[in-house]
Design a protein around this nucleic acid. Structure first.
Lengths: 326, 326
DNA sequence: TTATCAACTGCAAACGTTTGCGACAATGTT
DNA sequence: AACATTGTCGCAAACGTTTGCAGTTGATAA
């Protein structure tokens, strides 16, 4: 069966297309009698407006795009979930795109956003995104972009990030407070601005408290496990994990060696919150909430869309969630 | 700046809109000289076709929808990832929708699919979806639906599922093979067909081997943990977990009680594969691959779209992934 | 010269909506 | 009786494409 259109409703009812259209959107020009008649007819014929035609005509898609490296990631998942919820509330649609951390796919995705005439884009850039030229094309056509989590370094764009320095500082301070003497600190991809900032903040506090600090970078689970095995030889009394991936690697190494947490070794992480609860004793972590980030990013989008020329640069504050691992 | 359109390209170049359109899609009617001229112009003006107009005109959106309860789920995540990859390869777009297991949102999502004139829908229904009336409306307008994972019981619809009986059977057989005497078996939502089938298959094998079997249903982590604590009093020598959520609950209980796996107790699960590897010793599990399911669902979609009237009813076979937990 | 042909390009309709404007009848006002 | 007002409704253009068909060239053949 072919789709019902306004034209069909018009033919069946004998009313004009414009009357049908107005009746369905409760326009004051149309009499109540006609309205109810049209609405009933539309229901029996299962009319659904063709959204392409609507958008073409109104030039407003009520559509946002979001580009993440992968939806298979606790943090980005929760960001998307939050964005989705807000979109639903505000009657927007969300187009979810995955870049796979590939700049080429990323630029394809941006093209898709342009073709779809999105009203705005939320973007978490890939590590390799050096220039944001493909993004600037969006700006040329007045499509606002809210960068989140991994953002460009330049200052002339909207950003919503988790606390970079703060979260590292909180973890470091807790380690100092607990009188730890030697910490193994594992950081994520060293290309990211956030990693650099956290690294500096963390190591600074360590040296301020005269705590020995072994540092290394790792961006996946297996590598983290290897690193842990290597540096465990130096007998650290605590381990700091900057990401969930690092945490799982570290935990595998610890479990294999049958070390007791927190007696043999303490663990503290920065996390979105799910992974740390899987272990026993549960891992103490600094929560960087994707939900909050999503909500804030959406707010920023709405305010720039409604005309604010203010450059949004906002930060989610982190909170310490105490487990028994330190 | 406003978007570049064919009309603008036409005005700038002095060529007609139709020539522009044809030149951009390499139509043989247009001379090479004109083509390269137009293409260059389009590039400098950053032309991107308005996809709404294209779809409206061509009546083909190259768009699929997928409805999942939530993308925050290991299994559905991997299904989506697979679908997305196939879509990209075949030049389709994927519209990802979350129902939150709420039938009302589900039906809103279906409406969205209709409004967007999707070419097909992949759907994982909510536990409460009793009648599939809202889905049948899609069928009326010739939008094919491939149900996956959680599917309606009726036989007149396309389905792609993970092995229900097989996976339970494999787990049960391994338990028997390892000479276990008393097993605690935790199953998921008892409303689901898949749970019933697995329950029956599992318990049947247990009784065939004279293995004592304590069974219970649970659909979240906390509840599973409680159940485990309760039934651990009956000293089972092994635990079967039908889902990842159950597994994490069970593991928390086990870790709290400091039980040694597999000496004190054995564990076996049905899982998508990520969670079992987090623990040490790693958990033996029956893998139900979301990736494979996604690929198969896409295949089914393509074949029904290209005219096959055959009712697709396909199953992903499970494979045993041996850890050290049994 | 005229007819024929190929190569190239433009006209105009159509996809399904929304919406400014005008038409028309019925009613109220002077 | 003439006019203004109000309540309903339809006409037609526009959004940005695609595409069947026809038109315009210039060259070649008769």
């Amino acid at each position: 069966m072919v789709n019902t259109t306004l034209k069909k409703l018009s033919q069946v009812s004998g009313l004009s297309i414009s009357t049908i259209s107005r009746a369905l959107k409760n326009h004051p020009d149309i009499s109540e009698k006609t309205k109810s008649l049209v609405i009933e007819l539309a229901n029996t014929l299962d009319y659904e407006p063709n959204i392409n035609a609507v958008h073409l005509r109104t030039q407003n898609n009520r559509l946002f795009g979001v580009i993440v490296p992968s939806i298979s990631n606790f943090f980005h998942e929760s960001v998307i979930a939050a964005l989705e919820e807000e979109c639903r509330k505000n009657n927007y649609t969300l187009m979810i795109l995955q870049s796979g951390d590939d700049p080429e796919i990323e630029s394809d995705n941006i093209k898709l956003c342009r073709q779809n005439r999105v009203n705005g884009l939320f973007a978490c850039i890939t590590p390799e995104t050096k220039n944001i030229e493909s993004f600037s094309k969006l700006k040329e056509v007045d499509i606002p972009i809210i960068f989140f989590d991994r953002v460009p370094e330049r200052s002339d764009c909207h950003k919503v990030c988790v606390a970079d320095i703060d979260s590292a500082t909180m973890a470091a301070n807790l380690i100092a407070e607990k009188q730890k003497k030697k910490v193994l600190a594992l950081f994520g991809n060293s290309n990211f601005l956030i990693t650099k900032k956290r690294f500096n903040a963390f190591t600074e506090i360590m040296s301020a408290h005269n705590i020995a600090c072994i540092t290394a970078y790792s961006s996946n689970e297996t590598h983290s496990e290897e690193l842990t095995n290597i540096y465990l030889a130096e007998n650290p009394d605590s381990i700091f994990c900057m990401t969930d991936e690092i945490l799982t690697g570290v935990m595998r190494a610890i479990q294999k060696k049958q070390l007791k947490i927190p007696d043999d070794i303490s663990v503290i992480a920065i996390s979105n919150g799910y992974i740390p609860t899987l272990y026993y004793p549960s891992i103490t972590y600094i929560e960087t909430s994707g939900k909050k980030l999503g909500k804030l990013a959406f707010e920023s989008m709405m305010s720039t869309i409604s005309g604010s020329t203010f450059i949004q640069d906002r930060t989610i504050e982190s909170v310490l969630v105490r487990g028994q691992s330190i």
